[in-house]
Nucleic acid binder design. Structure first.
Lengths: 134, 134
DNA sequence: AGATAGTACTTGCAAAGAGCAAGTAAAGCA
DNA sequence: TGCTTTACTTGCTCTTTGCAAGTACTATCT
């Protein structure tokens, strides 16, 4: 998805992360804060390695994620969300809440959403602060 | 996207509407409440007619939209969101808010978002009620 | 009633993207 | 110094997308 289709904010957003994989990568980065290439590859949905590489590059170009040197090894790379990427959290939360309403979802995720529903704004604020700190 | 990739709620959601076009169709239905095939085809992003037909069918199968007889003509069909589709509104709103933060967006959409920001919960509740009524 | 036009699609084909398997390069480890 | 790990890349096939054209039903006009 290379060309800008319109200046509608929904369209602009989808031009960046509106594919089958980007939001799953972003989900994993929300849950883990930072991951190596190999760890991202292990996502249960089974993304192909070339697709992962392409998406990571696109997300980095778009400013949603950034590459970091791994503290333990030069062979490893860490990926994490930029502030712009962290700002996707409210969208991610709403997606989870929507899906929870219509599909059975894993218990651990359900537990997280219980917290969210008790104080959505507070949860998001705290989570975003934590993500932007690290 | 036919196969279920995992039971993660994000993945489940993307399996249904995680492509380049579905959320744009849904956006148009949010803005207009109900539209004919031809009206959906006129979206500024320029969706191809075969793609539109395929997406409408998939969204209908998934329970997000429904077909209605047009009151004025048997030749026309009306598409509108089901309650399940209307429940996507919070996601749609958050997408708009995110995009507004990082891209220039049209003035009319900006005006709507100003309202949203004054009372997000109230805005969403009222809009959803109105959409589910019609 | 017959011809013209609008509406909602379908079909055929070329181009782009996704997905699989294998390969490469740099770094760490024994 | 070789074996492994890590992060990719490359080549190829298959599916999906997107364009152009066509079809069928309905409506309108004369």
């Amino acid at each position: 998805m290379k060309t800008l289709r319109s200046d509608c904010p929904v369209s602009r957003s989808l031009d960046i992360w509106g594919d089958k994989w980007s939001l799953l990568i972003i989900r994993d980065l929300f849950l883990a804060k930072q991951l190596t290439y190999g760890e991202l590859l292990k996502a249960p949905e089974g993304i192909a390695t070339n697709i992962l590489a392409a998406r990571l590059q696109l997300l980095e170009q778009s400013g949603l994620i950034e590459k970091l040197d791994h503290p333990d090894s030069k062979a490893k790379v860490l990926y994490k969300l930029t502030p712009m990427g962290v700002d996707l959290l409210p969208i991610m939360i709403e997606i989870n809440l929507w899906a929870e309403k219509y599909f059975p979802i894993p218990a651990d995720r359900k537990a997280m959403l219980k917290e969210v529903k008790m104080d959505k704004e507070g949860f998001i604020k705290a989570a975003m602060k934590e993500l932007k700190r690290a």
